[in-house]
Computed example of a mutant assay.
Amino acid sequence: MKLQPTHRLRAIAVGAVAVSSALVLTACGSDDNTGGTNAGGGTKAASNIKCDGEGNLLASGSSAQKNAMDIWIKNYQAACEGVGINYKPTGSGAGIQEFLQGKTGFAGSDSALDEQEIEQSKKICKNGQGINLPMVGGPVAVGYNLPGVENLVLDADTIAKIFDSKITRWDDEAIKKLNPDVDLPSTKIQAFHRSDESGTTDNFTEYLHAAAPESWKYEPSKAWAGKGGQSADGSSGVATNVKNNEGAIGYFELSYATGNSIPTVDLDTGAGKPVEATVENASKAIAEGKIVGEGKDMAMELNYATDAEGAYPIVLVTYEIVCDTGNNKESLDLTKSFLSYTASEDGQQSLAEAGYAPIPDEIITKVRSTIDSLA
């Protein structure tokens, strides 16, 4: 089943961690983030990790969750000696393709599998299919580089016009109207977007399409469709370019903004006051979502145009994509053990320090039982 976007709501899926071993994987197998924040994350949860399986696990996909994966892998490997987890942040599109080719144990994606991808997965998932397990949530921040401007408010319409090259100077009247007390320079705007297919782009354009339909005429997509601008590879590439170029603006996960000391835009959503990009505010938006997948599939539908107080609407949910049945037997135990930790209370709570939002309790509880049932 392909989840079709509506004017305000869209199903998104997020990314997977695949696991490969020195053995050839034939298992059911998002974005590339190789830089950004220090993953940190101690090993305090190690004593609560149930170790199972052996060998090496290879995963690839969403770069949006790369920093979360760094924390999880560090903690898991500290508790479970003799196993290796290798997550490659190749981007959601590339991660899904490697999964569908049987190269990885599971994939990370910021967009759910579509109808065609589900059909393809049935060739890898013997007697089963690929399913989406929401594991990582968080805000997609809009970061900017404008010396002297510490607080900036934008709305969906203005952001859409900036990224479609219809607003090209920082002292444009539309920006000034939203920031009457800010001394805006006439600096040329340099808008950076992803060059690779990205679930982050998919979710960012879902927001523009839902909240500013008159200014953003393009259909949401992993591939960038706007006019003009400059491209960069991965969230880390966009963040680096914003940090290094005066007048720049770009979109990336909050951890890349905090890790690079990049200021972020507050959103005028129509609520009582502008909403800051924070983990807490993203959680408020994610909590409005619902599971729309069928069977064991847990693809979600989110409201990108919410005007609820304190809800930050540019959010993504990264999925770990696995087979419901038909996973590679040699890596199944390790896959289940590792994903059980990432979905655990300790695993979810370790995300906040890196700028991610834990998945709401009623959803992550279902994820845990689904992981237990993988075969």
Results as ranks from 00 to 15, higher is better:
L57P: 03
G229K: 06
Q230A: 04
E330W: 09
C323W: 06
E301C: 05
G40K: 14
D70C: 05
A22C: 13
L25H: 10
G250N: 03
K161A: 04
G226P: 01
L332Y: 05
Y304A: 02
E119H: 11
Q129F: 10
S47I: 13
E294R: 08
A212K: 01
N260L: 03
P360K: 12
A305P: 05
V275L: 08
L57W: 09
S186D: 14
L267C: 04
T264R: 01
R10E: 13
I118C: 11
V279T: 10
V275Q: 00
S186G: 11
S231C: 02
A112I: 07
T240I: 07
T37P: 04
D297G: 02
D164R: 07
L254E: 01
G93M: 12
Q101D: 11
A287F: 03
Q65C: 07
G91V: 13
G250D: 14
D202I: 03
Y144E: 09
T240A: 08
F204R: 02
T335D: 12
T264P: 02
E276A: 15
C323K: 06
A299C: 09
A357S: 15
A46K: 07
K176Y: 06
V153R: 01
S109P: 04
C125D: 03
K161R: 14
K166W: 01
G138T: 03
I175S: 01
Y251Q: 11
A68W: 02
T269S: 03
T90E: 12
L25N: 08
D202C: 05
V322W: 01
T370G: 04
D31N: 13
L133W: 01
K296E: 10
T205Q: 11
K227E: 03
Q4M: 03
P185C: 04
S60M: 10
A212Q: 03
T325H: 14
G226T: 08
A287W: 05
A45T: 13
L254A: 04
T258N: 10
I321H: 00
V265A: 01
V136N: 09
N203I: 04
E280C: 14
Y87Q: 13
T37G: 09
S20C: 14
N241E: 07
M1S: 08
D164A: 10
T365S: 15
D183F: 10
H209C: 04
K126N: 13
V279Q: 05
Y341N: 08
P360Q: 13
V238A: 06
A141D: 03
T201M: 09
T370E: 04
Y312C: 05
A13N: 15
S165V: 06
V279I: 04
A45V: 12
K74E: 05
I189F: 06
N86H: 13
A141L: 07
K66V: 12
E54S: 12
S165N: 14
Q116N: 15
Q230P: 02
P185F: 02
I249G: 00
A375T: 14
S373W: 08
P213S: 11
